[in-house]
Design a protein around this nucleic acid. Structure first.
Length: 387
DNA sequence: AGTGCAGGCCAC
DNA sequence: AAACGTGGCCTGCACT
């Protein structure tokens, strides 16, 4: 961790110099939106046409905006700024902060979980948040190397495969989705095959990517506007895709309609297990209602997955106690549990955890599936095949 | 020095 | 960008 911090610090110093060169060598605060805006649009004279503004009227300069600007202008400063942003984020939020939070008595960081942290029944984690440790980039993943199992122990990670989409398949009873999961197909490829009317083995990577974005869009209360903004599709192409999705998976439309209807009528929506989320704004009008509708569509799905995970955690805990195992449940990351197991318990734990998680709730139609990984630290985890 | 908001970005 | 859901934490900045 300390080495990683030094390396990042050195990289940042070099980056700062390169960025200041675009400002006539004059130093400024690169993470200040106003000062960055000054460099891009006054000093470098980049075009501001069509740029979105934040609610305070400034130009929005998120990574997505900067990437578009880079594609449009070829300005060499932008890549440097994006890199600077990425490194300062990782360094300040994780590399510098986490070691400060190590408890001297245990030599470990200890998060706090909030049972009521999320409106959907999910846990939230804070001080430090251990549910958002980077995994997307190689550099971010390096931070996970700092989480090391005790001598003689291994980490075992168990994550529910596509749990929210399985919940969606069950709730909607959509025959196409249900069948895809029963046959344990690549769900996004299967969806793409339906959407684009091609055999599943002829689905292109791009088709799969678009199908994935679209299906997740449904869970989040999609709009053509939103889908277009997150893909390279035009607004009308996005709308066509959404129409195709609802045509191919008719259960989706029924789910959305009946959920919103119940929400308006009762004032709340429910998970499969009856967990309520009160949604008074379904009865107002305007953007607040639209936001409430997206929340209402998402809540039963996310809540049901959260409920299943909580049931699983109780089952696993009971099974560990019953068998007087030394393995400890360390972390929960929404659809994933991380354990620390003595090496001689690993084989036992893998089977036990898989059984308790997959059996946490038996849908009549869609199986739950758990993927398992084992490793000496949180970065070097390798897959374990169970079945 | 402490507080709170804005903007941004990490995870699922 | 965000009219795609759920969170928490960082820096910058204005304010008390």
């Amino acid at each position: 961790m300390r080495n990683l911090g030094r390396r990042m610090g050195d990289d940042l110093a070099r980056l700062e110099d390169q960025i200041y060169a675009f400002n006539d060598g004059v130093k400024f605060n690169i993470n200040s939106g106003d000062q960055l805006s000054d460099l891009l649009f006054n000093k470098l004279q980049l075009p501001t046409a069509g740029l979105e503004r934040t609610k305070t009227g400034r130009y929005s300069l998120t990574a997505g905006v900067l990437e578009n600007l880079e594609a449009k202008t070829d300005s060499p400063a932008i890549q440097l700024i994006l890199r600077y942003r990425q490194l300062t984020k990782l360094k300040s939020t994780y590399v510098d902060a986490l070691p400060e939070l190590v408890n001297p008595a245990t030599g470990r960081v200890h998060t706090s979980y909030s049972q009521l942290g999320a409106a959907t029944g999910r846990l939230s984690s804070n001080d430090p948040n251990l549910q958002n440790i980077p995994t997307r980039t190689d550099e971010g993943r390096e931070i996970r190397r700092g989480f090391v199992a005790n001598p003689g122990c291994m980490f075992v990670a168990a994550d529910y495969s596509q749990v929210e989409l399985r919940v969606l398949a069950h709730i909607t009873q959509d025959p196409n989705l249900v069948q895809a999961f029963r046959e344990d197909q690549d769900i996004h490829a299967a969806t793409a095959a339906q959407l684009f009317s091609v055999p599943i083995d002829q689905v292109t990577k791009n088709q799969r990517r678009i199908a994935k974005t679209t299906v997740f869009g449904v869970i989040y209360g999609i709009s053509a506007f939103g889908l277009a903004a997150r893909t390279d599709l035009s607004r009308s192409e996005a709308q066509q895709l959404i129409d195709a999705l609802f045509a191919r998976f008719p259960g989706l439309r029924d789910y959305i309609d009946s959920t919103l209807e119940e929400g308006r009528r009762e004032g709340y929506v429910r998970s499969l297990f009856g967990r309520r989320r009160y949604m008074p704004d379904l009865r107002v009008s305007g953007p607040r209602r639209q936001a409430a509708e997206r929340e209402a569509i998402n809540a039963p799905i996310q809540s049901t997955a959260a409920d299943i995970m909580k049931i699983a955690m109780i089952r696993v805990d009971e099974a560990l106690r019953e068998r007087k195992l030394k393995t400890r449940m360390l972390l929960q990351v929404h659809d994933e549990l991380i354990f620390e197991a003595p090496e001689d318990e690993v084989d036992t734990i893998v089977g036990l955890v898989c059984e308790q998680m997959e059996g946490a709730y038996q849908f009549k139609d869609v199986p739950l599936k758990v993927d398992l990984e084992v490793g000496p630290n949180w970065e070097e985890m390798r897959d374990i095949t169970t079945h």
